[in-house]
Design a protein around this nucleic acid. Sequence first.
DNA 1: CAGTGGTCTAGACCACAGT
DNA 2: CTGTGGTCTAGACCACTGC
Lengths: 238, 238
Amino acid sequence: MDAELPIHQRILADIRGRIVSGAWPPGHRIPFEHELTREYQCSRMTVNKALSQLAKSGLIERRRKSGSFVKRPQSQAAILEIHDIGTEVRALRLPYRYELVQRLVRAATRADRERIAVTVGSPLVELTCLHFAGVDPFCLEERLISLATVPEAEAEGFGKTAPSAWLLGKVPWSAAEHAIRAIAAEARVAKLLDVPNGTACLVIERRTWTDGKPVTHVRLTYPGDSHRLVARFAPSDG
Amino acid sequence: MDAELPIHQRILADIRGRIVSGAWPPGHRIPFEHELTREYQCSRMTVNKALSQLAKSGLIERRRKSGSFVKRPQSQAAILEIHDIGTEVRALRLPYRYELVQRLVRAATRADRERIAVTVGSPLVELTCLHFAGVDPFCLEERLISLATVPEAEAEGFGKTAPSAWLLGKVPWSAAEHAIRAIAAEARVAKLLDVPNGTACLVIERRTWTDGKPVTHVRLTYPGDSHRLVARFAPSDG
DNA sequence: CAGTGGTCTAGACCACAGT
DNA sequence: CTGTGGTCTAGACCACTGC
């Protein structure tokens, strides 16, 4: 039947199947490693590989001297994939256009500290950009970039290149934090997005760090219900 | 300095650090296993454990005969944790209250098929519930449960127990799909949430399956900007 | 063909938590 | 103390792939 999976993957799949199907409910004790060793005719390392992975993915809990137990599903975790806006638009089979509305270089104010964790007075680039799908504004991007962390941003005009793409190629990797909420479009936002005042908008804010230093804060505002974020349940291991 | 990490975790952290810091850019070849074996004075299995994990978490790519290479960051993935509403409210240090507004048992209409993938005519429970934080409505829950998949739901009144908690204990595990968007509250929703008509609301819709069969569709509507979804970047391994 | 990673073994020692 | 999982070793064979 199966296409000759490695032993540890077979063990993992078997156990996961029993948990997912409900045959082994939360709290159920999984056979000890040495029992599985006999059952699958393999060494303990192989069994351990499977069980460690199940533990890491949160399906089971392992306790010394007691054994391994099926965990209660806890916080629903979903993987949210956040794509590049251009890619997003083109996936809708609409022509994509980027437009820089404003670019400022200035010193950070106290108000900026809530958006990007820099000290007051440290240099920033502030960008306002629009992303179009066809003729309609698809997304308003308001961004701060810390010049202390990314000094190269001072020389970049962002007239042609969208800042997200530029940053991806420039700043190596990072930690990030997302916040998603709904707002009513205020006058300035409404005008830029060409929608009536007070239109419900989806706002995604993302803070990014590299090596502990703040890189950028971006606020993406999507008008109306034109945009949906889709996430699938975390399947974790495989 | 370090608190005596296991060797494989030290290797993993070292390599991840070099990738995340940018010292090893995308495309950079990671030392071969046998090289790391010498560097860390450990066996190949230990090195392999670290590298396999890095590969599984998507930071590196491994190719036989060629070696292991730093991957380009691809689609930004963030882990979105979706907690139980009661837990959420209590985390805000507010008293939580659950209230059932309406409970119906009926046959699925064609309109339901967009929400929950059942055949027309198959039996459903339809629930409308409110979750309160203090005296204010915090979240409106509109839910369909497929009685074909979860027949026990017919006997449950949901007067005291919120359906999410009940389902978690009843239906084993599942696949799920989330959609997040912003809407303007229509009259009925606005009245239930005690907000003005047209208030921007955050809507989370979740479809759940078990073993390929549809379990439930739930629409959670959070008024105004009272609610923020927070996601952190997927750090994967650790 | 040769070198890489993928997998596996049959041991071992240790830390830790129940008894 | 005992039994569990956590980690590690020093080998081994194989599959794949680039030369």
